[in-house]
Amino acid sequence: MKIGFPRALYYFDYYPFWAGFFYNLDIELVTSEPTHRGIMESGLKMAHDETCLPVKLLAGHINSLKDVDYIFLPRMVSVEEKTYLCPKFLGIPESVSAAVDGDIPVITVTINWREGQNQVLKALEAFGLKLGKGKAMIRNAFQEALKWQTMYGELRRSGEDFEESLDLCEKSFTILPRETSLKLAKTNQYKVCENREPRPGIALVGHAYLVNERYANLDLVNKLRANVDLKLIEETETKAVENSLKGLRKKMFWSQAKKILGAGYSYVDDETVDGVIYLSCFGCGMDSVSQDMLARRARKAHKPYMVITLDEHSGEAGLVTRIEAFVDMIVRRIENESNLSAYGKCLDNN
């Protein structure tokens, strides 16, 4: 049996879990190709006009999956206690499969960690039974899947790139001994040459499915890495995220926004971060809240802050202009700071 998994949306956060789950159920998982022009265009044509770019991309990816027995679209309601995922995630099996007409049947399972691990396991058991697998096998697959996801998180925190992490994570459970792949991760880590002059530190925050989606974001991560020392939310410890959100009057309701805002707040206070960039896209309800909250915090701390909004026809020129101007601003600021001692004082008065 072959199951198709679209390389979009939850792929960028939770693929290791699902890859581990299906691997241990002895089911072949086929992912769609990385986004290219054809996928994007078919997605734009099919998806509902008012939805956001990532959901449109999902439609394109579903459409590009051929030669599989089923297409798997999980309904990810919640991935941790007391938070929900984006409402669009909740309705995906219906909303997106309505937009994409194809002959391949869609299978789904509801994942809701708000109800606790037992409920998640129960849902997965029912799902696995339908696929003809035994209960013991499903339980084991669930435990293994959690390990895959944890391993992926560790790799990201060690500074490993997104694609490399996915690759290494998969290998470490399938072919390589665990220790070898961890060692590999350490040698592969992105490092700055030591003899280079110091570069500005910039943190890039935003949804994983925008930051790691290289086609749609015009390879923003590598464009930035060419000029700055880049920090990503995946590299930030969960503890730091939670600590920096302690002052909020109300808990963040959405888990993605919690991660983005928590990491964002910690960057605002971090002296090694000279500026924060928020990558967002049109039509994101969550970002409309967290983007502004982060803007206010950054402004209070006089930390340079910029929002980049993606849409389907993002011209490269506009993006490059903004990045260049932002980096220039920070570099000129740093150069000036070392000449002018009264700089910080002046700034605070204004």
């Binding site: 006089h302 340079p304 802050y305 909004t309 849409d311 026809h313 993002s314 506009g318 202009t321 903004r322 101007a325 932002f326 220039d328 601003m329 000129r332 600021r333 000036n336 002018l340 700089y343 002046c346 700034l347 204004n350």
Partner: peptide, 14 residues
């Protein structure tokens, strides 16, 4: 600008 240095900017979207 503050003290001749750009401290913030914004540009229109598409």
């Amino acid at each position: 600008l503050r003290d001749g240095i750009v401290v913030d900017f914004a540009m229109n979207t598409v």
